[in-house]
Simulated scan of single mutants.
Amino acid sequence: MRRLFPVTDQTSAAGDREDREWSLDELAEAYAYPGGEAVWLRANMVSSLDGAAQHDGRSQAISSDADMRIFGTLRGLADAVVVGAQTVRTEGYRPARAREAFAARRAAAGQGPAPAIAVVSASLDLDFSLPLFTGPLVPTLVLTGAAAPPERVAAAQRAGAEVVVAGDGPGVDPRQAVRELAGRGLVRLLTEGGPRLLGQFAAAGVLDELCLTVSPAMTAGEAQRIAWGPALADPSRFALASVLEDAGFLFTRYRRAPGPSA
C-alpha cells in the first residue's frame, strides 16, 4: 500500500509511498476520527470504475483484501455502525466483534470492546432470531419511526435489541437518527450503506466524510450507485483528504467542504 496524497517531505521520508502492507496501527492513525466531542458521520463504500456499488447484489466481488483491512479498521474506530435493513438482509450482517488489535485504542478513547450495530428500518421486517440481534457483544440498536408496527417493535425488544425512535412517521429522519445516537454517547459514527441510506444521509446534510474505495473493475449491468434517492437541489461539495493505493485499488477519503453547498 502506498500513500499518494497528501505527500510531504516528512511522509516521504517515513516510507509512506513505498508499496508495502500497512499495519493496523498505521491504518488506524490514517483514519482516526477528528478530535473533540462533536458527532462525526463517515461512510465507507466501494465502487467499480463504472460506478457500480455491487455486483450480483453484493459488494464482495469488487472488494479486495486491502479493502477489507480498511473496512475492519473503520469498524475498529467507530462507536456505532449504521446500516440499512436491506443491506443487513443482503450482506448477512453479523454482530461486530472485539479485536485485540484495537482493544487498547478503544479503551483509551473510552469506547466499549466493539461498535454497536444500528439498523435503520421503517417496517422492522427483519429476522430477529439472527445472531445480530440475539448474540451481539454490544446490544444491537434498531432505528425506526414512531409509526413502526407495534408487533415488530415488540419482537425486536424480545430478541434483545434496543429500539430507538428517530422519526415522527413510519420512517427514520436522518438528522434525528444522528442526534439519538449522539445522545447515547455514540459520536464516532460509520455507515456502510446501502445506497438508499447513504442517499438519505447525504440529502439531509449530515454526512461529514466519505471513504470511497475505487475498484479497478468494470461491471456494467444495472447495479446501484453508492448513493441512491431523490437528487439534491445543489451538489454537496467534499474536499479530498487522502488517497492510498494498493494493487490498483484507490482508497480515497473526502471530507465535507465548508460553505453553503456543504
Rank of each mutant, 00 (worst) to 15 (best):
G135K: 09
V138P: 00
L141N: 02
L143G: 01
L143R: 00
G145V: 04
A146W: 00
A147I: 06
P150H: 01
V153P: 04
V153Q: 11
A155E: 14
A155Q: 13
A156T: 11
R158Y: 04
A159T: 05
G160C: 07
G160Q: 00
E162F: 09
V165L: 14
A166Q: 02
D168L: 13
G169E: 15
P170T: 11
G171H: 14
V172H: 00
P174L: 12
Q176S: 09
A177L: 10
A177S: 01
E180G: 02
A182F: 12
R184T: 01
R184D: 00
R184M: 01
G185V: 07
L186K: 07
L190S: 05
G193M: 11
G193T: 11
P195C: 08
P195W: 06
R196W: 05
L198T: 08
L198P: 03
A203C: 05
D208A: 14
D208M: 07
E209N: 06
L210V: 12
T213W: 08
V214E: 08
S215V: 12
A217E: 11
A217R: 08
M218I: 12
T219H: 04
A220C: 01
A220P: 04
A220Q: 06
G221Q: 01
E222R: 15
Q224D: 13
R225H: 12
R225K: 08
P230M: 07
P230Y: 05
A231Y: 06
L232A: 15
D234M: 10
D234F: 11
P235C: 09
R237Y: 08
L240G: 07
L240S: 09
